[in-house]
Design a protein around this nucleic acid. Sequence first.
DNA 1: AATAATCTTGAACAGTTGTTCAATGGCCGT
DNA 2: ACGGCCATTGAACAACTGTTCAAGATTATT
Lengths: 226, 226
Amino acid sequence: MTIKPQRNKADQGETSKERILASAESVFAEWGFDGASVRRISEEAGVPVALINYHFGSKAGLYRAIFEKRAPAIMDQRIAGLRLARAEPDLDRRIDLVVKALIYPMFSLRGESPSADFGRMIVREMSDPQSEARGIFRDMFDPVAEMLTDAISKCFPDWTLEEVHWAYHTMLGAMMIVMTDNGRMARLSGGRVSSDNWEEAARHMCAILVAGLKYRDRDQTRGSED
Amino acid sequence: MTIKPQRNKADQGETSKERILASAESVFAEWGFDGASVRRISEEAGVPVALINYHFGSKAGLYRAIFEKRAPAIMDQRIAGLRLARAEPDLDRRIDLVVKALIYPMFSLRGESPSADFGRMIVREMSDPQSEARGIFRDMFDPVAEMLTDAISKCFPDWTLEEVHWAYHTMLGAMMIVMTDNGRMARLSGGRVSSDNWEEAARHMCAILVAGLKYRDRDQTRGSED
DNA sequence: AATAATCTTGAACAGTTGTTCAATGGCCGT
DNA sequence: ACGGCCATTGAACAACTGTTCAAGATTATT
């Protein structure tokens, strides 16, 4: 009865499939979908290339699998945040909770390094025209996005549809840049401000966005009618 | 004396170099740096592949050449906007001009289709960790970015460095998403709101951001001291 | 008109891409 | 001990990658 290698638990402790997912996340984040090669991913995972196609069908299948693994947790946190917001009767206080329901679940990714990679993947996917074809956002993010725009319009019953959607997208964009920032903020501030501190990031952004929604000059945005 | 082809002016009217730059801009915007192939670019320009390396040295050289062609115009507009802002003595009114100096030059790209591509290129470059190595932002965008953060801190003399830089990045991010949006906003709003109308986009975003800066709750962001 | 400089062309280069395949390994229930 | 099942492996595939080269065409200079 010899001691067989049996997946070397101390060294890696995961199945090959999980190790592929983990290395793919960091490689996709750094190089993008096209820039990343399945060989680089497989090397980093310590498995032969063919295993990727065996487990995930294709490079695109692996890419999507990462989102299917990570997105639900974020969506659940947002839904939970929105439930809290709905329980707040004072609309002035409620919008604060809605904004935080959008921002915080995403920022809890930054900081802990493995999940920061997923944040970068989201932003890349967002800024890629090809993402329409992949349908990842449509399938996994849009439903909660609609809940959020609904929640915003409930907080500001007299807003036009344009105002609601521009507000949502403004918030979304502000969030994007923090997730994708890699050193530029530190460079511009002479190293005194860093985007790594996600708690600080969330505090600043929420403060600006909440005030922006509450106090913006609607004369410029209300539109002519309806 | 036969009539030689002489570059078929009616058909294209540009030099090969210009036609390469034009087609590269749209191909890079749609497929990203790695997803775009020099062959696709050359086909779209109607020239042989080798011409790209002859005129621009390499694929990366062509990529950079696009930024060197487009960026200065935007930077000049921002500088001009900042000059106007500095002339406004009332700080409350001045911040409005500073925000617009950041936003409007970028949004004048959207709408006219050829330059919308450059907007997408900027966002892709921004969300690419590899951009650090290319140094495009460092060389062409950072100087004006510093002018903008300076202008913000002059409008709010009591703000901390963190507050200034987070404000700038929040604005920057909000801008990003509009430049990169391709149909998602229309989809989420049931086709009633579109990101194509850049004037409307700029109006909404400026309104939110200006109010956000002016009226945010500084108790959450001021920091413990300094 | 002759020469030099610049631009254009198609073919070829070596390297990498994602994917497929047949062969092998280990493990489980029977 | 035996198949049956799933996971793993390395080699091979054709297609595509960015770049180079020598030859040709065009334009500018003398």
